[in-house]
Amino acid sequence: MSSIATPSDRPSAFTLFLIFARIGLTSFGGGLSGWLLREFVQQRGWLSEEEFLNGLSISQALPGVNVKNMAIWIGYHLAGRTGAIAGFAGIIVPPAIFILLLCTLFTALARYPLTHVGLAGAAAAAIGLSLSMAITAVRRVRRSVPPLLAMACVFVAVAILRWPLLWVALGLGTASVAWEFRRLRAQARAGRESGA
């Protein structure tokens, strides 16, 4: 489905800055990670789904605004240090300037009810980006009981019980990583023994 870019057709830092700036300035309706998946994996094929999801997992686990983390991750992955700086600057600075301008504009537009209807429609369509990313992420979880159970617990704790994200991520994240570590170590050992 997606081809991994060879080093020669990977973008320059400046190109990355322009792409992140464009996404930062046009991603009405939220769901920014979905916009990033669309751009870098599905349309340009610069990252594989696998690479994108690895970065996304780490961006979510580490503190900081996810989409900014993701921009740095993608930037670094595609163009090293300047790429990381380009990602950070592109996703933050132009939208920050834009939001100050919009603050003035929206105060004027808020008087018209159609503004709200239009934005509600945009937000609804933007959920498509988030939902398709959720489906991609869920599909890529290993089909075995422990990871699927961890995923289900996170969903219930966050969506239904509304527990604080920090404690859910810390508790279940630690358990899930520890389990995966044990599994991979046992696998490596078994591999060594059968090889010897």
Binding site: A137, M151, L172
Partner: peptide, 25 residues
Amino acid sequence: LWQRALEGGLRPIAAGMIAAAVYVL
């Protein structure tokens, strides 16, 4: 090994969080 464990272990956590966010949205 630690890196693959973190990637594999965090994957279901991230998937659960994204699915929960979409559900709430």
